[in-house]
């Protein structure tokens, strides 16, 4: 029988201003960025930055809930591989992310439609 390592996942709801300090402290605790994504619900945008630890299998998600107009600092300066995730958020959801290390200017997927993941107002 193999041992199962499955610590409870942590979901940490934080303010935009705390994002960089929290991400930095997770990085210092030997976490790697596992995924980052945005979701649109109730006219708010939820950003989830998930971090994983390969030794303990701990999975911690930082959740930031913002208005679509709020500006968010980029975490690429602390965690360089976040660059693709942040460009994806920016292109698909129109999240205003400041200072991405390599800002592809909405040209990651090069789609013609703007912010396709946000439901159209008044449309079907």
């Amino acid at each position: 029988m193999a041992e199962v390592i499955h610590p409870d996942e942590i979901l940490d709801e934080i303010e935009v201003s705390d994002l960089l300090t929290k991400a930095l402290s997770l990085k210092k605790d030997n976490f790697r960025l596992s995924q980052a994504c945005a979701a649109y619900a109730n006219e708010k945008i939820e950003l989830s930055y998930s971090f994983a630890n390969d030794d303990t299998y701990q999975f911690t998600t930082l959740r930031v809930v913002i208005d679509p107009e709020t500006e968010v600092p980029s975490i690429t300066e602390i965690i360089p591989p976040a660059v693709f995730y942040e460009n994806e958020m920016k292109e698909l959801f129109g999240v205003k992310i400041k200072m991405i290390s390599t800002d592809l200017q909405n040209r990651l997927y090069r789609i013609e439609e703007e912010t396709p993941m946000i439901p159209k107002k008044g449309g079907n």
Binding site: M1, A2, E3, V4, I5, H6, Y57
Partner: peptide, 10 residues
């Protein structure tokens, strides 16, 4: 190792 599906038994 997270133990989804039947992996905990293997």
């Amino acid at each position: 190792k997270l133990g989804y599906a039947a992996y905990p038994d293997l």
